[in-house]
Design a protein around this nucleic acid. Structure first.
Length: 648
RNA sequence: GCCCCAGUAGCACAGCUGGUAGUGCGCCUCAUUCGUAAUGAGGAGGUCGGGGGUUCGAGUCCCUCCUGGGGCACCA
């Protein structure tokens, strides 16, 4: 029989009999490798060591030192071990799927009784016992009838359904972890003893629809995390604790920024500190947009349903709208209004006042528009997803020929704003024509090209998300990356020929005829609520000086210094700095601690030495060092820092 | 909307198998004037998310609604 030739990562080749497994290959190299091997990459595909190789191939044998492969196998095998543990503890539980995800895995089970947090402990314990059994993992390829019959006989309907969904030409692989068997495409470790019993943890149980479909049964999903060793697991758990500390809901309370309460779910009560940050951000955005040629407007919150019927929202968006019924005097029927969920129809009304000429275009109408949407109860989350929010919304009415330059200008504005707010990197996604759409292919070609050209013009890269555009036009989504690597979609730019048409927007062209303008929906922050949440988390509450609600606390050390403390506060306020005095009868240690915890960026301590020198002792948040500076010096420094980046 | 968990003083939490509520911080008062992350003492403060039920008796058990949290679905 002809030999096959395997090429190793170092370029060496060796011949083997066809059907040789990576395990045998590893054994032929050294007994230590055979022992350490966990899997192999054969021609770019990750396989387990039992995978027979029947043709010439490139092969790399992996050990636990190969991070990516090791983690994939650990997490994947733990999913199986967990499912085995669950079925051993509760034999009536039906199994479904259990994929590897970021940092771990999950497995979905069908069981009538809910899993409790205590159950997780029991499952974890059983998993550790299984790992200690060092059960061999083996695999077989089965034909479909056998697999289906097997699962039908075992009473595993979800597995049967899965098999029906697998393409007919794909081999069905069965894996055994000891006596426990599961349908799986692999790869897996050689025995359960290769799993790190002290480097995984079951995290939570949650409901999840079978196959992600809300019409299908709800299963119980158990999430776990796993790493190569105990230290990495500990590091991960520590990281989660750190992330929890920057949770905007927690910081919002600690810094006295805002609160939510049950009489107004999803609507924010802004406290003085939080509202200060909002106003600073809003003032900044107002200046930036004015410079960029936007005109600010203000439109109604409550609008009659007839406008929403004309705009199409009544049909498409009704269930997300807050409806307001009004008994009008003398009227036979109640008048139905809706709180606006979006600003666009109102903006068209402003545009429609007075006949517009092509000379008026592009017309950029901006509004910090307060909108209300009835979000489903389960989707709300702190400031990140609310029912009452304010968009930094604007609509640009323009001709088709102006789309490209408007888009380019928008990206540059957005980029500059993100930079000023501390976000250096963002990604652009271009969503193109969906299956169901209006307009001709030529229309779409031109507009999509205009957006692509605009992105190229400003020297940005982008990815295309085919078919994800709105039914009326393509859009750009802008995702910024925060300090801990999370991405947030904030900015958007959408091309819309539809709404101007529905609401009868027109302009008189050079030719003297009436034309339909395009409408560009765009936002940079998205919503103020959500963006403030992102800012708080990005900075872990330590907002840059210009945004910080309380910028300076002037803390007296002895009461004889009180008069000078107040003088320092007055000087700072005169210079445009948000300063307050702390002349309480407390020790300086206490004051420093309290204001540090409160994330005040600068504490100025004042004792008799400072009174005599007309100086201040400066302590910056996060530092333990203190500097002595003259009063005039610190006022000048802080007055500069207090200015928004566009005013410096 | 769906599944699970939770809802006790301003905040963070304790309160076992039902016997009528406790700790820390904060707050108030007094003393202390003390140089860079918590000075000491005293005091006030809760119809235990709402409603209903079981019970001689419910923060504790049951039902229901609301809100929050973790997910899933949703986000024209």
């Amino acid at each position: 029989m002809a030999q096959i030739s395997l090429t190793f990562p170092d370029g060496n080749r060796r011949d083997f009999a066809p059907g040789v497994t990576p395990a045998e290959v590893a054994a032929s190299i050294s007994t230590s490798l055979a022992k350490k091997a966990i899997s192999a990459t054969v021609d770019g595909a990750h396989h387990d060591l039992q995978w027979p190789i029947n043709a010439d191939a490139r092969i790399a044998i992996h050990t636990m030192a190969d991070e990516a492969q090791a983690l994939e196998l650990i997490r994947h095998d733990l999913a199986h071990v967990m499912a085995r543990a669950v079925q051993e503890l509760w034999p009536d539980v039906k199994v479904t799927i259990g994929p590897v995800i970021k940092d771990g895995w999950y497995y979905d089970f069908d069981r009538i009784e809910p899993f409790t947090p205590e159950d997780l402990g029991a499952i974890e314990k059983r998993m550790k016992e299984i790992i200690n059994l060092r059960d061999v993992v083996r695999t077989e390829v089965w034909d479909r009838p056998r697999a289906i019959a097997h699962y039908e006989q075992k009473g595993e309907p979800f597995k049967v359904e899965l098999i029906h969904g697998i393409p007919g030409d794909e081999p069905l692989r069965m894996y055994w972890h000891g006596h426990w068997q599961d349908l799986c495409r692999g790869p897996h470790l050689q025995h359960t003893g290769q799993l790190p019993a002290d480097a995984f943890k079951l995290m939570s149980v949650a409901g999840a629809y079978w196959r992600g479909d809300s019409n299908r049964p709800m299963l119980q999903r158990i999430y776990g995390v796993a790493f190569k060793n105990r230290d990495e697991l500990k590091a991960h758990l520590t990281m989660l604790e750190e992330a929890a500390k920057r949770d905007h809901r927690r910081l919002g309370k600690e810094m006295d920024l805002f609160h939510l309460q049950e009489e107004a779910p999803g609507m924010v009560f802004w406290h003085p500190n939080g509202w200060q940050v909002w106003r600073t951000l809003e003032d900044y955005m107002r200046r930036r947009q004015r410079e960029a040629g936007y005109r600010e407007i203000r439109t109604p919150q409550v609008v009659d349903r007839v406008l929403w019927e004309r705009s199409g929202h009544w049909e498409a968006y009704r269930e997300n709208m807050f409806i307001v019924e009004v008994d009008e005097e003398g009227a036979k029927e109640k008048r139905i209004n809706a709180l606006k969920p979006m600003n666009c129809p109102c903006h068209v009304q402003v545009y429609n006042q007075g006949l517009k000429s092509y000379r008026d275009l592009p017309l950029r109408l901006a509004e910090f528009g307060a909108c209300h949407r009835y979000e489903s109860s389960g989707s709300m989350h702190g400031l990140m997803r609310v029912r009452g929010f304010t968009q930094d919304d604007a609509h640009i009415f323009c001709t088709e020929a102006q789309i490209e330059s408007e888009c380019a200008a928008f990206i540059e504005l957005l980029s500059s704003v993100y930079h000023d707010l501390g976000f250096e990197s963002f990604d652009i996604k271009l969503s193109t024509r969906p299956e169901v759409r209006i307009g001709t292919d030529e229309d779409w070609d031109r507009v999509e090209t205009a957006l692509e050209n605009a992105i190229k013009k400003v020297g940005r890269s982008y990815v295309i998300d085919p078919g994800e555009g709105a039914f009326y036009g393509p859009k750009l989504d802008f995702k910024l990356t925060d300090a801990i690597g999370r991405q947030w979609q904030c900015g958007t730019f959408q091309v819309d020929p539809n709404l101007p048409s529905r609401l009868g927007a027109e302009y008189i062209g050079e030719d003297g005829a009436r034309h339909r303008p395009f409408m560009l929906h765009r936002a940079i922050l998205g919503s103020f609520e959500r963006f403030l949440g992102i800012l708080i988390e990005n900075y872990a509450g330590k907002l840059p000086f210009w945004l910080a609600p309380r910028q300076v606390v002037v803390a007296g050390i002895v009461s004889d210094a009180d008069a000078y403390v107040h003088e320092v506060v007055a000087e700072l306020r005169k210079a445009g700095v948000r300063a307050e005095a702390d002349v309480r009868n407390e020790k300086i240690n206490y004051k420093v601690r309290e204001h540090s915890v409160g994330k005040v960026p600068v504490i100025l301590a004042i004792g008799m030495k400072e009174v005599e020198e007309r100086s201040v002792s400066v302590r910056r948040l996060g530092e333990t060092r203190t500097d002595s500076e003259s009063l005039t010096g610190i006022v000048a420094t802080l007055a500069h820092e207090a200015k928004a980046p566009d005013l410096r």
